[in-house]
Nucleic acid binder design. Sequence first.
DNA 1: CAAGATTGATCTGTCAATCTTC
DNA 2: GAAGATTGACAGATCAATCTTG
Lengths: 167, 167
Amino acid sequence: MTRATVNRSAKSASGTARWLDTEEAATWRALAEVMVRLPWALECQLHPPPDAGLSFIEYHALARLSEEPTHTLRMSELAVLTNASLSRLSHLVKRLESRGLVRREPDPTNGRFTNAILTRRGHAKLVASAPAHVDTVRSLVIEPLRPDELRQLRNAAERLLKRVRDE
Amino acid sequence: MTRATVNRSAKSASGTARWLDTEEAATWRALAEVMVRLPWALECQLHPPPDAGLSFIEYHALARLSEEPTHTLRMSELAVLTNASLSRLSHLVKRLESRGLVRREPDPTNGRFTNAILTRRGHAKLVASAPAHVDTVRSLVIEPLRPDELRQLRNAAERLLKRVRDE
DNA sequence: CAAGATTGATCTGTCAATCTTC
DNA sequence: GAAGATTGACAGATCAATCTTG
């Protein structure tokens, strides 16, 4: 893995190694565990046996396509929207295509672009999966928190994102 | 993938599919993006090229071992502490062992258990990696938030964990 | 036979290299 | 030649099956 091109400037201003205090460490541990367990729980819910389900990222790729009036997005746009690399998305869409959930064709306007298009079957699959998935998100993320706590969570998440995005 | 044994009861009480409102959806999107980007940023920082670094879970496995007075934990205990399956941990520790960072031996007390033991080299590797990693965590998670916001984040994370743990 | 641990097949993601279109 | 996209080799995770010890 040579991911290191992505993140460089991740160093504290001082340069000295200041340790986390008890409270900070507890916060970090809780967040780190959420980052492992919550995605896992959602994968489990979307992948019921016998396995004809969707992975988390497959679900969101279909969902993003369905939000477009034309049910179409360029591969590069879809990659950004799903937080995936173009390479990952290409492999992913190839699999979805082989299942008949998505179709690809070159953009008539500009042959460099590839359009990913949600098929009828893909849309049906999404519609069939969405209610249970949304129920799970509601149950795991929304319901456990009061409205003010939800706002606080959103605030914190957006602050962290701002930092992690422009590293 | 047959992860579905893990999560069953993830359904809203009503059973009807209630959609997320705008605010809820924004919260969920922000959290979902954090769950993708933050782990990735940390992997990048721990895996500098040329790649002799540690993955996030490798780092934490070594860290957990180092917290034990004997630098030793049973495989099954370490699996729980790192939120990994025993199978995943077994593959992982085998790789760490081949790099000389960890050593395995059967528990003398009870041959069914395998002890994972941090080696001198493993400890050195951890000590060498820790400052930059902690700096990154501080920069990406601690510094962007005020103390009260940190407390709110911890509170929210722990509430979500309580729900997701006993699904 | 149950608990702890390991193994092998398979699948998905990463990286680097390549192909195509403008 | 650069941008968009794809490909193939490899690394790591999952699942199911297996091995081992008590």
